[in-house]
Design a protein around this nucleic acid. Structure first.
Lengths: 206, 206
DNA sequence: CGAAACGTTGACCGTTTTCAATTACAGTGG
DNA sequence: CCACTGTAATTGAAAACGGTCAACGTTTCG
């Protein structure tokens, strides 16, 4: 996706802090003081916001090499939980104040930061767009198209469907049913952990 | 909300371009080459993305003083339409290349840009969170809580409900019905262009 | 003053959610 | 190595909810 983490190096290594997390362990909780911006070194973390009724929303998923919680730079508290997804997850925490100091003198790094944020804006907008599709099958098709790559557009599933269901805003049951419909209609073909998009005049790209 | 438009001044006025728009007129369409980042001087614009089935999503609304299409700085084409909402809308268009040049030498301005983008990320995440609430009345309550301010938390409505409906992802009928339910239940009180949040133990803030 | 958009409510229909049950599979400890 | 347990995948049936269509009063604005 390009150089997203350029600005991390601005802060002297001894000022950064490394954290190792087990799967499910939290790096911070919503409401905690926003003290640092982070990067995933290994594994994967997920930013989750909890609703009052107990449901939760995955706001962001950051894989190895990606940065997250940039928005915390100008916020007092974190507004979501950060939990590790993979068993061996390592995160670099960059103290907010130090980073802000460094950024103030470095236009390139600040621009890189802005660029990363712009990418997030795009991603979030795309997700919002998907949520506006009422029909479950169409919504899933849209999601698949967004994820697909290759000439016969295909998607390799790295996570369970059940997780994808919540990401697109459906129950897993509805998701499975829709998948079945799409397969019967011949719009997709399901492999082991793969989905291939079929259909003439179908492969529009976002 | 703070100095969002700091970076606009970086580009010499003669390089900028002013556009006057009538209500409903488009500034650009999705697919057009992304040539400029913009600021609303007067009126209001809306960024809309059209789905294949004809439906549309409001991705962003920018009021006078706010900037928009920052993401276009690193994109080749606009990925949504921009249409004026108010009758007399004026927009300053800042050529992409010129702005990029200027930003590269100015850390403060780049940081300001990043900050504005971070705010957008937060806003989009909030909207996503709201969309994850299945129940229409609860979703509306969440939206209201987010907008509310004051000790008896209240919301002043600057726009028609019909518009709010699409923002929260409901039809206006469903919205009106839910409002009626919430009012009957005593959870809200509706004034002329105001809604007051009631209910004991209700005023949680985001 | 008239047209257009907003606000509001009713009835019906379709989809999704819910609840429930079953199969498949991966990891765990005996 | 295998029973055992929990999660993922899948499908069914019924209920609930929001969408759609429709009608109508009201406000706004040219």
């Amino acid at each position: 996706m390009g150089p997203k983490g350029t600005w991390i190096g601005l802060v002297a290594p001894e000022k950064r802090r490394l954290r190792n997390l087990k799967a499910g362990e939290a790096l911070f909780r919503q409401g905690d003081a926003a003290v640092a911006v982070c990067r995933v070194d290994r594994g994967r973390v997920r930013l989750v916001r909890h609703l009052e009724d107990g449901a939760s929303v995955a706001l962001h998923v950051a894989n190895a090499g990606e940065t997250f919680a940039e928005a915390a730079l100008w916020a007092d508290v974190y507004h979501c939980d950060c939990v590790a997804e993979a068993a061996l997850t390592t995160v670099t925490m960059v103290p907010k104040a130090a980073l802000l100091d460094a950024l103030e003198g470095d236009a390139d790094a600040s621009l890189a930061l802005a660029r990363g944020l712009a990418a997030q804006v795009r991603e979030l907008r795309a997700r919002l767009e998907i949520r506006n599709i009422r029909s479950a099958p169409e919504r899933i098709m849209a999601w698949l198209r967004m994820q697909a790559s290759g000439d016969p557009p295909a998607v390799r599933l790295e996570r369970p469907w059940t997780e994808i269901a919540t990401e697109v805003g459906l129950t897993h049951e509805a998701l499975y049913r829709s998948l079945a419909v799409l397969a019967h209609t011949g719009r997709i073909a399901r492999g082991n952990r793969t989905v291939t998009l079929l259909g003439p005049a179908g492969q529009a790209r976002g």
